[in-house]
Simulated scan of single mutants.
Amino acid sequence: MTDLDKRQRIRSYVLRTGRMTQVQKRSLEENWQRWGLEYDGREIAFDAVFGRSGPRTLEIGFGMGQSLVVMAEASPDTNFIGIEVHSPGVGKLLHSMEERGVDNIRVYCHDAVEILCDCIPVGSLDAIQIFFPDPWHKRRHNKRRLIQSPFVARLTSKLKPGGILHLATDWEDYARQMMAVLGSADGLSNTCGKDQFAPRPEYRPLTKFEARGERLGHGVWDLVFSRVTRSEPLVSQGKTPQ
């Protein structure tokens, strides 16, 4: 049994008890039954949950959901699953969905590791995105970072061949760690070439926080890797799949 299968005793997040606004609380109460997913330990039946088939994108840690709702609105044929542990962010996303008329997102308010392990079928996703995860910037806290080899192996297993794993961070040290972890992972190939970061894809919206950082000269690093097929060599890692 791997550390991941033991549900990572070291948590990669802190469950903050931020106050919910009345709008967030109302939206959570009124819209959860429509768009929320309860964790039950069983694999999700995508077509039944969305009432249709279509490409599937999973976002882990969507924060307040600003970029997720914009991406879903821009790609109405794609089915999005969002995971976030902080209920104010979930309430905000549900409110934004209602306000903008977006119906192609379903939401878990639960630990992403358990959702990934128990609810997402192997080889079921077209894309996984994790934008600006907690950098745990103090050296003694680096072990709490979400992007570690066992977790990336689990992410990779959930992607279809050719599926995309897209990460982004505004901490250079974490970006380098992400590159090292993904660059050595079996089954992944860097779409931009060995050790190369990607320009921000047009589909990832520029958040207000990110735009402010850019004005202040802060960097943002995107990593875009693809799940390779068994017959495709892992060019960026210099390996051949086993």
Rank of each mutant, 00 (worst) to 15 (best):
M97N: 04
H141S: 13
R200P: 02
H141A: 13
V90E: 02
G187S: 06
P150E: 11
R139G: 06
F132H: 14
S157C: 06
R139H: 13
V102N: 06
L182G: 00
L165P: 00
Y108D: 01
R145S: 12
A153C: 12
L146R: 01
W136G: 07
K138D: 09
L93C: 11
A180G: 11
G123P: 07
K158A: 09
C192Y: 13
D173K: 13
L93E: 01
W136S: 09
N104Y: 08
P201A: 10
A175W: 01
P121E: 11
A198P: 03
V85G: 02
L167Y: 09
W136V: 09
P88Q: 10
L167G: 06
Y174V: 05
S124T: 10
D118R: 03
E114G: 02
E99F: 12
I83T: 00
L188R: 05
P150L: 05
I128D: 01
N190S: 08
I164T: 09
P161K: 07
R145W: 11
I83D: 00
Y108P: 01
V113P: 01
D103S: 15
K158N: 02
I83H: 00
R100W: 06
V113I: 15
F151M: 13
R154I: 02
F197K: 07
E172H: 13
H95C: 05
D170V: 06
V85N: 00
V181R: 00
C119H: 03
L146D: 03
F197Y: 15
D118Q: 05
E114K: 15
L125A: 12
N104S: 10
I83F: 01
L188C: 11
Y108L: 08
P133F: 07
L125G: 11
K160V: 14
G162Y: 14
S184V: 04
P135R: 09
G123F: 13
F132M: 11
H86I: 02
Q129L: 15
H86C: 04
V181Q: 03
R144G: 04
Y108S: 04
L125D: 12
